[in-house]
């Protein structure tokens, strides 16, 4: 599981935000487009792409994209 690919998959959930702004250190909740719909989309993406169940608590307790990556990686 690659961090770069995870960041790209994460960025692909956003419709209006330029994918190039996303890095592992991006604080995703500070991105203007972030919403409850994107939280749900993220859970669906991680389930589909990585076969990992990401929980709402995981998202609430994470600050950066890398925090999420580490959670997903630990459950693979």
């Amino acid at each position: 599981m690659e961090l770069e690919k995870f960041v790209a998959n994460f960025a692909a959930q956003f419709d209006e935000t330029d994918a190039s702004i996303f890095t592992a250190e991006t604080k995703f909740r500070d991105v203007e487009e972030w919403s409850s719909i994107l939280a749900l989309s993220l859970i669906a993406m991680v389930d589909e792409e990585y076969d990992v169940k990401l929980k709402g608590d995981d998202i609430r307790n994470s600050q950066t994209v890398n925090d999420l990556y580490e959670i997903v990686k630990s459950r693979k």
Binding site: W34, S35, S36, A39, L40, I43, G56, I59, R60
Partner: peptide, 11 residues
């Protein structure tokens, strides 16, 4: 704010 924009709204 901690609960805003999360899956909680859907629950």
């Amino acid at each position: 704010d901690d609960c805003l924009n999360s899956d909680l709204s859907f629950r």
